[in-house]
Design a protein around this nucleic acid. Structure first.
Length: 454
RNA sequence: UCCCCUGUAGCUCAGUCGGUAGAGCAGGUGGCUGUUAACCACCUUGUCGGCGGUUCGAAUCCGUCCGGGGGAGCCA
């Protein structure tokens, strides 16, 4: 039985068993209190071992933080404060010891920075355990949301030849291929016979499937070879990218808002205990902030309006804003936190600062793009209606010196049965950060990959 | 890639004006029949990130390299 269930069970005379890892042992004269955790929930189960039980001196008194154990015994009401029920041990078995002199985790709080040095052991801590349970729950909620909305999940390739212009540097994938004979150009003899890399976005491939299956989404790892050192960037992260045929920008925004509210409401309902940990130790206002997101409509404004608001605000920005310039972190913060005080959707950005595939508006200057900005973390979703007119797309590619031969298949989607379509991308870890209040993105993914660390 | 901060015991950190290393926790031993970050007593633990320089003397000052963190850019 999992500890999650045991803690909700009424005391009974029946003998049961429990397995887990020791978090702490406290001795009080002739008895020992052992707290074990099995990962099924944040809470520990308190085991009470009496000195007359078998193996008390040989096993119980030698248990230390980290040991893997199995107990049989009975669940009883706890006479002391701190827990409703406790487990009165009758027998103990030790699966694996954990030498205290060398085990890196102690029964106290560690800094996240230290825990990053032991990524294989840190899931045994309360905080990382809670983050990862919430992360897992969010991943399931994403699938449920799209299932309810009639989407098909498509698995776009991890190895790709499209660099999805503007998305950042690609990692190259190279290995000697079947035709490898030591030629001059490494790529011509390479496995794929042409330059290939790890995907920076599944969007272009998702578009192909949206223009066949209607509503699709991808959810998988994405890679950026950027040498960035911030608390919001990873070299390997997960991205959710829905793509919808017969969809305009407003419908795209509606879906994004509904999506975010669904995910946050799901965690509020299902991860109560884990969220409490973060409300207590990481961010007192967390729960309140999450409830605000689910309760209120997101603000919506155009880029042009936002620029006017910023210019008229009288606030001094480090980077002055004028039409044509992209927003800086300080501008996004000001809009979400001071002007609107809630999640804000900004639309219709200048074409010059957005990628070639976003649909050009009738003014010829802006594109049908939208960014969802969240207080505290900035951009969480970026999306757009896609350019569905062959000639316009071709022209925009030419303006940016993009080789049309490399995107022949993408242009084909506009050549044969082109249709209005739109989509967006959401950085999964940024969502986990927002939901947990965790300050550093490296602590919301099991094994973080950043420049210089893999 | 640029700017800033930082590196001292297993962990978190203090170390003043340059004078030769320190506290809490963890760990070890002992005590305690209801503990909750248990408590009490005693004990152990150091390439002061590396290398070089200044100095009678460097954790401390200078140079350089490496690691970590934050921010900017880029983005998700």
């Amino acid at each position: 039985m999992l500890i999650r269930e045991i803690l909700k069970t009424a005391p009974a005379a029946a003998v049961m068993e429990v397995k887990g890892w020791v978090r702490t042992r406290r001795d009080a004269g002739g008895l020992s209190f052992i707290e074990i955790n099995d990962g099924s929930c944040l809470g520990n189960l308190q085991i009470v071992a009496q000195s007359d039980m078998d193996n008390f001196e040989t096993l119980i008194r030698k248990l230390t933080t980290g040991c893997a154990v199995r107990f049989t015994g009975k669940l009883a009401a706890s006479p002391a404060k701190g827990q409703d029920v406790e487990f009165q041990a009758e027998s103990v078995e030790v699966y694996g010891w954990s030498p205290a002199e060398s085990y890196p985790l102690q029964k106290k709080r560690h800094s996240f920075e230290f825990l990053r040095n032991v990524p294989h052991l840190r899931p045994r801590t309360n905080s990382i355990g809670s983050v990862m349970r919430i992360r897992g729950r969010l991943a399931i909620a994403i699938g449920r949301f799209f299932e309810e909305q009639g989407f098909v999940q498509v698995h776009t390739p991890v190895i790709s030849t499209s660099d999805c212009e503007g998305a950042g540097e690609m990692f190259s994938v190279t290995t000697p291929g079947p035709g490898s004979g030591g030629g001059e150009s490494p790529c011509s003899t390479d496995f794929f016979g042409r330059p290939a890399g790890l995907t920076v976005s599944g969007q272009l491939e998702a578009e192909a499937y949206a223009l066949a299956l209607g509503r699709v989404y991808t959810f998988g790892p994405t890679f950026r070879a950027e040498n960035s050192h911030t608390s919001r960037h990873l070299a390997e992260f997960w991205m959710v990218e829905p793509e919808m045929a017969f969809c305009d920008l407003d419908e795209d925004i509606d879906l994004a808002e509904k999506f975010l509210k669904f995910l946050i409401a799901d965690v509020l309902d299902n991860c109560r205990e884990d969220l409490e940990l973060f409300t207590k130790f990481v961010d007192k206002d967390l729960r309140n902030r999450l409830e605000t997101v689910t309760a209120r409509a997101f603000a919506r404004t155009t880029y042009g309006e936002a620029v006017r608001i910023l210019a008229k605000s009288g606030k001094k920005f480090e980077y002055p804003i004028s039409w044509g310039a992209d927003f800086q972190a300080e501008h996004e913060k000001f809009l979400t936190e001071e002007v609107f005080g809630k999640p804000t959707v900004v639309t219709d950005y200048p074409a010059s600062i957005k990628p070639f595939y976003m649909r050009l508006n009738d003014d010829g200057k802006t594109v049908a793009a939208m960014d969802v900005l969240f207080p505290a973390i900035g951009e969480i979703i970026g999306g757009s209606r896609r350019e569905d007119r062959y000639a316009v797309l071709e022209k925009r590619m030419a303006e940016r010196n993009i080789d049309p031969d490399a995107y022949r298949w993408y242009l084909d989607l506009r050549r044969y049965g082109s249709a209005p379509h739109a989509g967006f991308g959401m950085g999964f870890e940024r969502l986990v950060q927002f939901v947990t209040g965790m300050a550093n993105i490296r602590d919301v993914i099991p094994f973080p990959r950043t420049a210089g660390r893999a």
